[in-house]
Write a protein that binds this DNA or RNA. Structure first.
Length: 431
RNA sequence: UCCGGAGUAGCUCAGUCGGUAGAGCAGCCGGCUGUUAACCGGCGGGUCGGGGGUUCGAGUCCCUCCUCCGGAGCCA
């Protein structure tokens, strides 16, 4: 019985007789010669069967193959330039493991509504396989980056009592006898406290926003990585961000060329994503945008169109720094050079928009308490957070990077829903 | 939540001025020894999103509801 191999291992076994377990993507036949293209998750393989070269029952089984049938193929590995992938299999045996009748997703056109209803089957398509592999590479690069730099992973709770930023965008649930609990929309407050224990920390997990967003950049459930660094100011924070983003992009370029090609994503523009990124203050950005015809006024947050105008034509991301206090969260540190603003940054990717929001945190107990009160937040819920400023307070900064937006930007995918296996959106909870 | 668009065959869509429902692909049958979304010939396939109205007659006009898509705001 021949050795069973994954398709990605076949080029090293030219001339050998091997077996492959896989799913049928498509078949073609010219009457006397047949082709089967299969997928096993490691790659794609074309098997060739000649009617005159095999037993009649094998040919019959070939003719009966349908899309997504699971099969065991046996044959000789042969290098052939005509085959997609460089090697093909001259078939000597074929076993149907699991038949597949009328697979709904044909190799022809489908609308997104149709495909989203069948997301569990859509995942098998070449495009979706490439997206999931690149997502995996991004996630692995994130973990490696922080591990290599001495960060400690701290998992923060998903069920929380106190609220992170603004209420009204939180998913609510009952929590035994303790009243309402909320699904976390950030791990930041927790990771800040862990920062005093470990110095350099990050959390990485799902986060939930009940905001009724309907755009190609929003999910209600998405994955976010949030590092927090002790004794780092806003400037150090941005240097970490640009190194981090560049590291992720370089990793994908290095290891996922084939998947980028499957997605027809030109890798060239990604090659210029290296530090330093572009930088502009919010105040300067407003002046520039007004010069470009935007009706933005100082104090208002930048709109999607404004972000597009600022990043249009850029070869790498742009930091917009130091937004007005009123437009940002309560925990951001007041800018000593301009107290109307806070020390923060949004990292805008060209063609997509915000992929990171970061800031230096307010480390003064009285100022932070004043901000909590000014925003009408429930003071009693933040006792533990305020404690961080009572016992050895310290300059610290951090940021949150959205995994799906990062994958969307790197792959050039038009809609964020394809960057996660099972997207959760305002109108979609199935499958 | 607001603004805009769309629901017709399994899929993607066309359907003129209100007058007997169409194409391509998929499926099935046949042909073809190097195909790349193979190709060529044939066949079957319809609650025109639901409900109500106008009309001799509605896929088409009017009202209403539902679903989906895109955009805005919010943000990662």
């Amino acid at each position: 019985m021949p050795t069973t191999l994954r398709i990605s291992d076949l080029p090293a076994h030219a001339g050998s007789t091997v077996a492959v377990n896989a799913w049928v993507m498509t078949t073609r036949s010219s009457g006397k010669i047949g082709f089967i293209v299969v997928r096993d998750g490691s790659g794609y393989l074309q098997a060739v069967v000649g009617k005159r070269d095999v037993a009649p029952d094998l040919w019959e089984r070939f003719e009966g193959l349908t899309q997504e049938t699971s099969v065991r193929l046996e044959g000789t590995v042969r290098a052939d330039a005509r085959a997609p992938g460089g090697v093909e299999l001259s078939l000597s045996a074929l076993a149907v493991l699991g038949p597949s009748v009328e697979f709904p997703i044909t190799p022809k056109e489908h609308g997104t509504a149709f495909l989203m209803e069948r997301r569990h089957l859509w995942l098998r398509s070449r495009r979706q396989v490439a997206l999931m592999k690149i997502r995996h590479e991004v996630v692995q690069a994130i973990r490696d980056f922080f591990h290599e730099r001495g960060f400690t992973l701290v998992d923060t709770p998903i069920l929380t009592g106190s609220i992170g930023e603004s209420a009204g965008t939180l998913f609510e649930t009952e929590y035994f006898d303790l009243g309402k609990a909320y699904l976390a929309q950030t791990g930041q407050l927790y990771v800040e406290t862990a920062c005093a224990a470990l110095g350099k920390v990050y959390c990485f997990g799902p986060t939930f926003r009940a905001e009724k967003s309907k755009t190609r950049r929003h999910l209600t459930e998405f994955w976010m990585v949030e590092p927090e660094v002790a004794f780092a100011d806003s400037d150090a924070n941005m240097r970490l961000q640009e190194e981090f983003v560049s590291y992720i992009v370089a990793r994908v370029l290095d290891r996922r060329k084939a998947e980028l090609a499957d997605l027809e994503r030109d890798p060239k523009p990604l090659e210029s994503v290296v530090p330093p990124f572009h930088r502009i203050t919010y105040t300067d950005a407003v002046a520039k945008l007004q010069g470009m015809g935007s009706d933005i006024v100082w104090g208002k947050d930048l709109g999607a169109e404004d972000e597009a105008r600022l990043t249009d034509g850029l070869d790498r991301p742009l930091f917009v720094m130091n937004y007005p206090k009123e437009a940002k969260a309560f925990y951001m540190k007041e800018n000593p050079a301009d107290p109307r603003t806070v020390l923060c940054d949004d990292c805008l990717a060209p063609g997509l928009g915000e992929i990171i929001g970061g800031s230096q945190r307010e480390d003064d107990y009285d100022l932070l308490l004043a901000r909590i009160r000014a925003q009408g937040l429930p003071e009693e819920s933040y006792g533990w957070y305020l404690d961080l400023r009572r016992y050895g307070t310290f300059v610290h900064s951090g940021f949150g990077l959205g995994v799906e937006r990062t994958v969307q930007w790197i792959t050039g995918t038009p809609h964020i829903r394809e960057t996660i296996a099972y997207p959760r959106m305002m109108y979609r909870l199935y499958p």
